[in-house]
């Protein structure tokens, strides 16, 4: 099996502060992996390295090509991104926003082609956001808006999708809907998914594998069952964990 993401000893300093101090892990094609870790562990920074935003040391490859120095359009055809915060001051229509996912395929002055419109329609259909197409983003609820952001990433038609805390700030129902949607994208579209997740339970419940970061280093990589043990958790969060019951694996849902 080819690896979709290969990270080898990635280190990064920002303004003289070391944020990443040697992160290494691989993610296979079609895997659904969550990154967890305490605040300041470098989770978001690692995603940004994969998006080509920082010039890190070490090696971070997506489908075999180094992310640092990748042409920005070419990289955007390999990896899409759903950010943590959505603050847009201007009224933007949902359809136009999802169409922005087609940017890496469009040349400067040419209008959207048939295949772009089809990709947008597919994305709206999979995420169930077609009904909002003419509304502006601001008129949507947090959960609806998150699905539209996922739709825009989906319209990018990339083999890898990165998400930064996709379900934080949502109520329980919308959290579940968003996580189910990601699982569906993972299964039906074959996308490799790497999501930062603050919620340990949700990460353990939904992902194939969990990677734990601490102080800019990889602390743990393995199945949810391997992680949800008092010993690794206490090392990770430096607090006592009491295990009360066994978590059901995701496949039983």
């Amino acid at each position: 099996m080819n690896n979709a993401i290969q990270i080898n000893d990635v280190a990064l300093e920002l303004n003289g502060t070391p944020i990443l101090r040697g992160v290494s892990f691989d993610i296979g094609q079609g895997e659904y992996v969550s990154i967890i870790g305490p605040n300041g562990a470098g989770k978001t920074t690692l995603l940004r390295c994969l998006l080509g935003m920082y010039s890190y040391n070490g090696s971070a490859r997506i489908n075999g090509t180094e992310c640092r120095g990748y042409d920005s359009r070419a990289l955007a055809r390999q990896v899409s991104y759903v950010p943590q915060t959505h603050d847009i001051e201007f009224p933007l229509a949902v359809y136009d926003f999802v169409m922005m996912g087609r940017y890496p395929y469009l040349s400067a002055l040419s209008p959207a082609q048939k295949q772009d419109e089809e990709a947008v329609e597919r994305a709206l259909q999979i995420t169930g956001t077609g009904q909002f197409r003419n509304r502006t983003l601001r008129t949507l609820s947090g959960g609806e808006r998150q699905k539209v952001y996922i739709a825009a990433a989906l319209a990018q038609e990339t083999p890898v999708m990165l998400l930064d805390e996709p379900a934080t700030f949502l109520d329980w129902r919308h959290q579940t809907e968003v996580m189910k949607l990601l699982k569906k994208i993972n299964a039906e579209c074959g996308a490799t998914i790497l999501a930062v997740n603050h919620d340990l339970n949700s990460a353990a419940h939904w992902s194939d594998r969990i990677i734990a970061l601490k102080n800019g280093k990889t602390l743990f990589s393995g199945t949810p069952q391997e992680l949800i043990q008092p010993a690794p958790l206490e090392t990770l969060f430096e607090t006592a964990f009491v295990r009360k019951e066994t978590l059901a694996p995701a496949s039983e849902q």
Binding site: R48, L51, G52, M53, S72, R73, A74, L75, A76, R77, V79, S80, Y81, P83, T85, D87, I88, E89, F90, L92, D96, F97, M100, G101, Y103, P104, L106, A108, L109, Q156
Partner: peptide
Amino acid sequence: LLTREMNLLLTGEELAGARGVN
């Protein structure tokens, strides 16, 4: 030449970059 890029900048620099804008 940059009208599409300006649209993307409205969504934030981070997201515009992730969508392939230089």
